[in-house]
């Protein structure tokens, strides 16, 4: 039930309302919402959004009563992009896991913060900043969380050399 309503709500963010089809794994995909096979992947909805759409998408998730699982990044060095992944889940028995993704250029990795919606995003965003150097615009306290306080390196970047 919640799966359909959340999918429709997220889909309304995109101009062309044609449902995005499941693309071949690894192939580039356009913005939009994909329904994934839960048994194979472990989540239900997979949305790729633009930085401008992020807050609206997270707002939808928040209003639907989801809790925040985590925020993390992936370095797609071959495509010269960094991906930020937001995980949301629910406390009720109607299982629905939503993944929201953003891709930003590697040389200018800036995404808006969602701490104004989910206070718990604070540490997750700081950690992602530690590991990938992704800047969360508007974050209240973007200093190293897990790395040393004077760290100027980002160890999960694929071109990081210790």
């Amino acid at each position: 039930m919640i799966l359909e309503t959340t999918r429709e709500a997220l889909q309304s963010l995109f101009a062309e309302s044609a449902p995005a089809v499941e693309v071949e794994a690894g192939a580039p995909r356009g913005n939009g919402v994909i329904t994934r096979d839960y048994n194979a992947h472990g989540y239900h909805l997979d949305a790729l959004v633009d930085a401008e759409q992020l807050l609206a998408a997270v707002q939808i998730i928040d209003q639907a009563g989801f809790f925040i699982e985590s925020i993390t990044g992936v370095d797609w060095i071959k495509e010269n992009q960094l991906e930020v992944i937001y995980d949301f889940s629910r406390y009720d028995f109607d299982v629905c896991r939503v993944v929201i993704r953003i891709r930003v250029p590697r040389d200018l990795p800036v995404v808006p913060t969602i701490t104004s919606i989910y206070a718990g995003a604070n540490w997750h965003e700081r950690e992602t900043h530690d590991f990938f150097g992704i800047k969360f615009a508007g974050h209240p306290h973007l200093i190293p969380l897990l790395l040393p306080e004077d760290a100027d390196f980002h160890p999960l970047l694929k071109d990081f050399k210790a």
Binding site: A25, A40, G42, E69, D87, V99
Partner: peptide, 19 residues
């Protein structure tokens, strides 16, 4: 296989997820 996989389990401390 190529892809993105997630699993959550209930540990003694709460929901642990691995992606």
């Amino acid at each position: 296989p190529v892809g993105d996989f997630y699993q959550a389990v209930e540990t003694a401390r709460g929901s642990f997820g691995i992606r």
